[in-house]
Amino acid sequence: MTAPPALTACHTADLAAADLAAVRALLDAAFPDDFDDDDFEHGLGGWHALVHDGDRLVAHGSVVRRQFLLAGRPLPVGYVENVAVAATHRRRGLGGLVMAELERVVAAGHGVGFLGASDDGAALYAVRGWPVWRGPLSVLTPAGVRRTPDEDGGVRVFDPAGTLDLDADLVCEWRAGDVW
């Protein structure tokens, strides 16, 4: 009888080069047409939830600190990045296992969380209680605030205290690659 997949959690600084390579390989396989170096970098520098089946990494997600503006006021957030489950291990609850750990980190360390959901991931986040952000989304670029209407409906929020106005203007900071 094999042991069930095991979750571990750690900071990026505690991941060995081989661990990072395994994360990158998992993400490349999960998003074959839409994942690049910028996307990978977005998930570094924070907390990782990793699920191994034996020696093989089969699920991953991370949460990093970001700074947003909510209705013009600063809002530090935990931003969930790089959530993926190996194709051979989907529909077994591993995405939920990863998200439970990331939600714990967000609630304890950041207060609120956000993520940009893929079409495939949207159902997982909806069932876990991450509603869609309804307000206008923008990015603070070096040239000023610029609307990102293509992202409307794709950003989700985790607000355990229930204090955020989901219809307010939300602005993220500029970064290379996908800003949301």
Rank of each mutant, 00 (worst) to 15 (best):
residue 128 R to I: 08
residue 97 L to D: 06
residue 119 D to V: 06
residue 98 V to R: 00
residue 127 V to T: 07
residue 81 E to L: 06
residue 47 W to H: 11
residue 94 L to N: 09
residue 65 R to W: 00
residue 73 R to Q: 14
residue 37 D to E: 11
residue 73 R to F: 13
residue 39 D to C: 09
residue 132 V to E: 05
residue 118 S to Q: 05
residue 72 G to L: 09
residue 90 R to I: 06
residue 93 G to V: 09
residue 100 A to W: 01
residue 80 V to L: 01
residue 64 V to Y: 02
residue 114 F to L: 12
residue 65 R to M: 05
residue 50 L to C: 10
residue 112 V to M: 06
residue 82 N to W: 02
residue 69 L to S: 10
residue 111 G to Y: 01
residue 88 T to K: 03
residue 133 W to H: 15
residue 75 L to D: 14
residue 103 E to D: 14
residue 72 G to M: 12
residue 51 V to H: 02
residue 55 D to I: 14
residue 45 G to H: 01
residue 130 W to V: 12
residue 101 E to W: 04
residue 68 F to L: 13
residue 53 D to G: 06
residue 130 W to E: 09
residue 43 G to A: 06
residue 117 A to C: 01
residue 123 A to C: 11
residue 60 H to S: 08
residue 60 H to Y: 04
residue 106 V to M: 03
residue 114 F to A: 08
residue 122 A to Q: 07
residue 35 F to C: 13
residue 100 A to K: 03
residue 65 R to Q: 05
residue 60 H to C: 08
residue 64 V to E: 03
residue 87 A to T: 14
residue 92 R to H: 13
residue 98 V to T: 08
residue 66 R to T: 12
residue 35 F to K: 12
residue 37 D to V: 11
residue 127 V to A: 04
residue 38 D to R: 08
residue 104 R to P: 00
residue 102 L to S: 03
residue 66 R to Q: 07
residue 106 V to G: 01
residue 67 Q to A: 07
residue 76 P to D: 15
residue 103 E to T: 14
residue 101 E to N: 13
residue 33 D to A: 15
residue 113 G to C: 07
residue 132 V to Y: 01
residue 68 F to K: 07
residue 41 E to I: 15
residue 73 R to V: 15
residue 120 D to K: 01
residue 100 A to Q: 07
residue 116 G to E: 05
residue 88 T to M: 01
residue 89 H to A: 13
residue 89 H to Q: 15
residue 110 H to G: 08
residue 84 A to W: 01
residue 103 E to M: 10
residue 80 V to P: 00
residue 111 G to A: 10
residue 96 G to Q: 04
residue 75 L to V: 13
residue 111 G to L: 10
residue 71 A to M: 14
residue 57 L to F: 05
residue 101 E to I: 09
residue 90 R to Y: 02
residue 105 V to D: 00
residue 127 V to K: 01
residue 130 W to L: 08
residue 83 V to Y: 00
residue 81 E to S: 07
residue 108 A to M: 12
residue 50 L to T: 15
residue 133 W to Y: 12
residue 91 R to L: 04
residue 51 V to R: 02
residue 58 V to S: 02
residue 51 V to G: 02
residue 134 R to N: 10
residue 111 G to V: 12
